[in-house]
Design a protein around this nucleic acid. Structure first.
Lengths: 190, 190
DNA sequence: GTCTATAGTGGGATAGAC
DNA sequence: GTCTATCCCACTATAGAC
């Protein structure tokens, strides 16, 4: 949020996130949220100009939690990429609807605390060593995560193998093939 | 579809897909579709029991088009994986809303023509050589595709590098690290 | 910060006549 | 296969009083 949210706004975001996580996005209506809070729907508009602002609050909340989890996982990890992937998968599985909100639309960067995106991306950046490589690795992780969350894959054992293969491939740069043009170092990885 | 669709049903699906592609999912309403067809909304229910059945028609339509494109791309390709990725990206970019419909929910396999899923998956399976490897590769391609479609990545040059790195990694199995347990051969890759 | 009341819009789906 | 008429649902948002 551009301006720091009030205590009450934070409470409302918390309840909104609970509704989203436990009942799904269709259930996150202004009426339902108000019911849960014991107030009337129109009162919510004193705290948030529109529903989208409320969702931005949930997104920020999710990023803060994810960033902390990724940082914890990176501490003293013998295999940083494995540790990251495990934590990432666990976060998405535990909060599928929040995860979708965080990844399915353009990030509202102008309404987010400065540095939060970079902080969340930092552990993977360190584990991969290069911003472009980090993005490719993230794409793999995100892709398999979404296919799992959306129940899109046949229920077989291949998915676990795919996770292993992907981590294996991205763990460190290949030494047996010529590498493409070195990508410039850049902090922002998203 | 379980039963072969009538000619009229096919026409309706075609128009529905046009609406979806050109105006987005919110625009795909029974009323709007009926307007385009010059009929009334209730009449649509003589052709489809509910809106979901109409969407299944669009999904099948999309798979048939994608499968044909992938097969064309695989013919005489010196670099099968590069060729596949180029075609896949182009399909998703040309039909973003159809692509989302095809990947964002469980496949309605029982309502689809037999073999269509496998046929669509075959070119990537051949390019990667192994079902589990194919799934990992697909996850990377799908992940980066979705992040691009959803405008989720910062507008920098890293994304093109990420595409290159991913293709490089998955082009052939690594020879410089020990491989994990060999995954069993299985045709169904999704 | 909360309320009541309500405007305005949109959606999916059905009954029954022709 | 199409129609008319209609039901019932849901939503965001605003005005104005307390």
């Amino acid at each position: 949020m551009a301006r720091p949210p009030t205590v009450r706004a934070r409470e409302i975001v918390g309840v909104a996130r609970e509704i989203l996580e436990s009942e799904g996005p269709q259930a996150l209506t202004m009426r339902h949220l108000a019911d849960r809070l014991g107030i009337r729907a129109p009162s919510l508009y004193k705290h948030f100009p529109h529903k989208a602002a409320l969702e931005v609050g949930i997104i920020i909340n999710g990023f803060e939690e994810a960033a902390a989890a990724f940082e914890d996982a990176a501490e003293d990890a013998a295999e940083p990429l494995e540790a990251f992937v495990m934590t990432y998968r666990a976060f998405a599985k535990a909060h599928p609807h929040v995860y979708r909100l965080m990844t399915e639309r353009p990030l509202p960067r102008d309404q987010m605390p400065y540095g939060l995106e970079a902080r969340t991306a930092a552990p993977l950046l360190r584990a991969t060593g290069d911003p472009a490589r980090a993005r490719a690795t993230w794409a793999f992780i995100h892709g398999l995560t979404m296919l799992e969350l959306n129940d899109r894959l046949p229920p077989d054992r291949l998915t676990e193998s795919a996770w292993q293969i992907g981590v294996q491939q991205f763990r460190s740069p290949r030494s047996d093939v010529a590498t493409p043009a070195e990508s410039e170092v850049q902090a922002r990885t998203g």
